[in-house]
């Protein structure tokens, strides 16, 4: 089960905790991986750790031209893009009444518009191959909202609507489009929280703990696999019971 030998996967935000875990997991199941992200150093370190079948493809996702060029670069490096994981995301948190146009636009551009551009760019190859997997990493806050994250929540909810619409369009061609909605996941970002803050978060979660990047990666592996061929337009919530939606 979940064998990805012979498949090529492009993962954005592979320099971050969740993206790196997804890349490791897909690679571990035999996929060739394209590691994309803004910071080249962590991508190189990850590629070195993975060894063969790992390609470093740096890309600034707020640069439209660079994003539009990425699918082609990935296909050249790997021969194809069978699996696209739109994982990269940024936050520019602020109270709604204080949020600037720029804070709004930056988050939408990277989290949502880049996913649109990349999905569009990989579809041609997937249509021809009559096989493809697009996995969009959304967030629980896209479903529940979160104070201070009007922009982020909008982008993550937007990914869900985009996934479902595209899923309709390409289902007949063997291409599935799904979203994963992680809850609180222990990454470098949450390491910065104080113990007190962490325990308050844990108290809200029925499982009593934060999730791990590997638990998100397992969901991505499933959705990327042949075994999930009949799953499309779905949102897989991985949140320890934080929000049962």
């Amino acid at each position: 089960m979940f064998d990805l030998n012979g498949k090529a996967a492009l993962v954005t935000g592979a320099s971050g905790g969740i993206g790196a875990a997804i890349a490791r997991t897909l690679h571990g199941r035999g996929a060739t991986v394209g590691l994309s992200g803004t910071r080249e150093e962590p991508l190189k370190a990850l590629a070195e750790e993975l060894g063969e079948r790992a390609n470093v493809l740096p890309c600034n996702l707020s640069d439209a031209d660079a994003v539009n060029a990425l699918p082609k670069q990935a296909a050249e490096a790997m021969g194809a893009v069978d699996i696209l994981v739109n994982n990269a995301g940024v936050t520019r948190d602020n109270l709604f009444m204080r949020m600037s146009e720029e804070e709004w636009a930056q988050v939408i551009e990277v989290n949502l518009t880049a996913a649109f551009r990349l999905s569009k760019g990989v579809l041609r190859g997937m249509m021809k191959a009559r096989w493809g997997r697009i996995v969009n990493v959304s967030s629980v806050v896209g479903a529940t909202g979160n104070p201070g994250q009007g922009n982020y929540a909008a982008s993550k909810a937007g990914l869900v609507g985009m996934s479902k619409s595209l899923a309709y369009e390409v289902a007949s061609r063997g291409i599935t489009v799904n979203a994963i909605a992680p809850g609180f996941i222990a990454t470098a970002m949450t390491d910065k929280l104080t113990d007190d803050q962490k325990s308050k978060i844990d108290d809200q979660i029925p499982m009593g703990r934060m999730g791990t990047p590997e638990e998100i990666a397992a969901a991505a592996l499933y959705l990327a696999s042949d075994e999930a061929a009949y799953v499309t337009g779905a949102v897989l919530h991985v949140n320890g019971g934080l929000a049962m939606v």
Binding site: R124, M127, K128, E169, V170, S172, R173
Partner: peptide, 9 residues
């Protein structure tokens, strides 16, 4: 409509 996109491709 998707067939027509593929035809053009």
């Amino acid at each position: 409509s998707l067939d027509t996109v593929e035809l053009v491709m």
